[in-house]
Design a protein around this nucleic acid. Structure first.
Length: 259
DNA sequence: ATGCCGTATATAATACGA
């Protein structure tokens, strides 16, 4: 079973690219971020025609997350992260597919740091950590997948010294990410490729993709009940080279039969 | 080093991303 995450940076503007990639790779489960579309503007019919059922949490212009499943409809178990009923940003949706709880998330960017946006990012991270720990204690196959907007270590940035004060790389957020791993979650790509330079994002500017000036910020975290089934992980980096593409590339894992 | 590009919406100028 192949599970992927893809920050599409506008699901309607990116629809031809998304459909091309879905047809090419046929992932079984897909987490999408940055829909930038209102709830009623999500392209559910086009995705259904492509063979995917979907649940999504839209928001006009900004944010937005979706969970797709090939040949079936995810069973929704949560929308929105607990811990702040006043949080109006669409950044978390969760469903069950094939007996796996899949949490699809878009963690706040947080720039500029310091400032209110960075404070929001840290609060959101706190809420995620609290909920992630509850999920782990259910002792079930579960995954937290999406755009975490964190480079976990120096190995995940093309030039670490240039990013040390950025909201994606400051010590507070790296510590918060490591705390998730300490709870028991496995960083799937890093687990299978402990020393490799792996990027999932390249800026549109400065010819970043051609220079391979990238960041690893899209992650797939697996619960212990699932991590033993991990067999492969990678990035479809060629998709970043397509015309009219997102600044992120699809990132994926392959699981052996988890039943 | 820098939103230099790209997407969204009040389709013109802004807000936002990382």
């Amino acid at each position: 079973m192949k599970i992927a995450t893809y920050n599409v940076n506008g699901v309607n503007g990116r629809l031809p690219i998304l459909l091309r990639w879905l047809k090419e790779q046929a992932p079984d489960i897909v987490c999408l971020q940055e829909l930038k579309a209102a709830q009623e503007s999500f392209p559910a019919a086009a995705l259904r025609d492509a063979g995917y059922g979907a649940i999504w949490h839209g928001q006009k212009s900004w944010n937005g997350v979706a969970l797709l499943a090939r040949g079936r409809a995810p069973l929704e178990t949560r929308r929105g992260l607990p811990g702040d009923p006043d949080d109006a940003q669409s950044r978390y949706i969760e469903g069950v597919v094939e007996g796996i709880v899949i949490g699809c998330l878009y963690l706040p960017n947080g720039n500029p740091a310091p400032g209110p946006k960075f404070d929001y990012k840290l609060r959101w991270f706190d809420r995620l950590a609290t909920y992630a720990d509850e999920l782990l204690h259910l002792d079930i196959p579960a995954a937290l997948i999406g755009d975490f907007n964190v480079m976990p270590t120096d190995l995940d940035v093309y030039k670490p010294e240039r990013w040390k004060d950025d909201a994606l790389f400051r010590p507070e957020v790296r510590t918060a990410f490591q705390a998730l791993l300490a709870q028991g979650w496995m960083d799937a790509l890093r687990a299978l490729h402990p020393t490799g330079r792996i990027y999932t994002f390249w800026d549109y500017f400065r010819n970043a993709y051609a220079r391979d000036a990238g960041l690893r910020i899209d992650h797939l975290l697996l619960s212990p009940a699932l991590s033993g089934h991990l067999v492969e992980a990678g990035v479809d980096r060629h998709v970043r080279g397509w015309e009219k593409t997102s600044d992120h590339a699809p990132t994926w894992i392959e699981l052996a039969d988890h039943r």
